[in-house]
Design a protein around this nucleic acid. Structure first.
Lengths: 342, 342
DNA sequence: CTGTTAGCGCATTCAA
DNA sequence: TTGAATGCGCTAACAG
């Protein structure tokens, strides 16, 4: 049985209302009373009960974050950004690892609602219809990070994947590469998969380069699928001098598979990644990649969330996060990399 | 204004007590009543308020996790294990990123207490005196993962770092390496730093190998400090054929620096890591390392926590997590690696 | 400046 | 099998 406001009031010989005022720094108490109460609080070791506060105050100072996966460099960086800003604003964060399972995320939504979170951040996964409806029914504000809903108008903070992929491809083209392989995400991923694919294709087209479908393969953004991607590419025996991987993890998978096969990066093959997680920095050789400002996106997401909350505003203002190309060691001028199958 | 148990009661024409019983599956209601109430709940879209429940029931089904860092492969894997098991048991988890800052973790402790968490998991960081006292004063059970308190008897789940380092070193010795460099964590880290250092030294000693202090350097478990570590080692110009890094990140740093310097792993130098995070799998070449079962440790931690909670038991039972050596590609027999400065 | 009181939404006695 | 009443710890009127 913990010690409550009542105990403090009794100990200090005042009413609970006075204690409450002092604890919450509200006007209306004398200097001497304050001292008395503060001393009692100190002596008794009183801690306010946030649950009780939440019940009457109708705010819990808590937000929920749904992530498809929390281990991994991408999600954890995002989460760290969210936590850092949330804390600064006086909020705690519930992590929910949905594992991209619909039933899990529905359960999470339910629990978060029951726990009366003040807001929710939905991160980097596609939304099913059922989830969308559940979200619609939510009374708290919801913000998407690193994803968006095509069917429901939730505000989001996210880089423009199409444009980023377009720019990345152009970068490779500018370096003189012409036969460029592409390892994408799942093709039915309308958020992170398709737009990058489209951006790639459009950039190729705008530069007058034909698309060779044998050079278009798809994975799931993970390391192993990057390895597999390169294997598929190699099996096609079609000439190419660069590969654009849709995630750093896949790009590192390409590096790894290339190493196994005795292919030297960047001397034989150029590799471009996407995300700029620490994996890019740690890679051998260090990976040239398209950066997403993950920690900043986390920050922006909670800022946006809290703004909407304060304004009780449905005012949907999306935030376009900036992408940029971080040059490291995996892309050289075309003339300096041999290429494969030429 | 959300819809409450009262609304359901009114709608169904019963008392709130009955609704409560039905919602909580407690004995004492008729079949027809149940149907009626369930229908009302369905129609109104009622969701119980966990905050109110928490206030009366004195349990919030929430646990707090304190991590020095949440981005990164190590912590996020641990966190994922914790979340997965917590969810299975019906608990939500608050993440707190302490950044190893004492004021932050003290704030976190305070907040978690106010939010009435049912338990706390303190992960992989050393405990200061002030934190220890705060933890002592906590009314909820507390479990340590991947760390322990030397001054306070909190239960922990953790691998035996001394033994693991001893075994890792023995492994290298068994492969025929004799001059082995060691890159440790902070030397004043009594939990993860010192024991590994001791295990290393003892293993060397037991195998009759002298310790060359020029081959003992220290970092902070991070990538960059691994790079720096190898640089220091190289500067010493003392012969060695293997390096034992106290974390995978540092080991990958060694790989990276070796690559920069044109040193081939494992042909010129053997490298052994510690942790077996995904960094080890993704490394080039794939890293031989001492595995900590992070997800299992996360699982064990919450299981232990809940057990203590149920038994209201101070019964301290620590859990020793199993370590094992995962052989990949960075360690060969001594005769197959040249070594440096010989 | 301070105290009294009425809920917040719910689980839980105790009666009926 | 059911309902009325009480209180969890706190904030926010309202009254003095």
């Amino acid at each position: 049985m913990s010690i409550t406001i009542k105990d403090v009031a009794k100990h200090a010989g005042v009413s609970i209302a006075t204690v409450s005022r002092i604890v919450n720094n509200q006007p209306g108490f004398g200097k001497k009373t304050k001292e008395k109460v503060l001393k009692s609080i100190e002596e008794l070791g009183y801690t306010p009960n946030a649950i009780a506060r939440g019940l009457v105050g109708r705010e819990t100072r808590t937000i929920g974050v749904l992530l498809p996966k929390v281990s991994g460099l991408f999600a954890s960086k995002l989460l760290e950004g969210i936590e850092t800003t949330a804390r600064k604003e006086g909020y705690s964060v519930f992590v929910c690892h949905t594992d991209s399972k619909e039933d899990r995320s529905i359960q999470d939504l339910q629990v978060l609602k029951e726990k009366q979170v003040d807001g929710m951040i939905y991160a980097s996964d596609q939304l099913s219809l059922a989830q969308g409806q559940l979200l619609e029914a939510m009374t708290c504000p919801i913000v998407f990070v690193s994803t968006q809903s095509l069917t429901h108008p939730f505000p989001y903070v996210k880089v423009d994947d199409y444009q980023a992929a377009y720019d990345g491809t152009s970068y490779l083209l500018t370096k003189g590469h012409e036969q460029i392989a592409f390892i994408g995400g799942e093709q039915d991923d309308l958020i992170a998969g398709k737009p990058r694919d489209k951006g790639f294709r459009q950039a190729m087209k705008d530069h007058g380069m034909p698309i060779n479908e044998a050079l278009m393969v798809y994975g799931d953004f993970r390391f192993q699928s990057g390895k597999k991607g390169l294997r598929q590419l190699l099996a096609a025996k079609t000439p190419f001098s660069a590969v654009f991987a849709s995630s750093d993890e896949m790009a590192v998978g390409v590096l790894s598979e290339a190493y196994d096969k005795g292919i030297s990066v960047p001397k034989d093959l150029a590799v471009l990644g996407y995300d700029n997680t620490m994996a890019a920095e740690m890679a051998i050789p260090p990976l040239t990649t398209i950066a997403q400002p993950l920690d900043d996106m986390g920050k922006q997401a909670v800022t946006l969330l809290l703004t909407i909350r304060e304004n009780r505003g449905k005012a949907i203002s999306n935030i376009e996060a900036e992408h940029e190309i971080v040059e490291r060691k995996t892309v050289l001028l075309r003339k300096n990399t041999k290429g494969l199958f030429y």
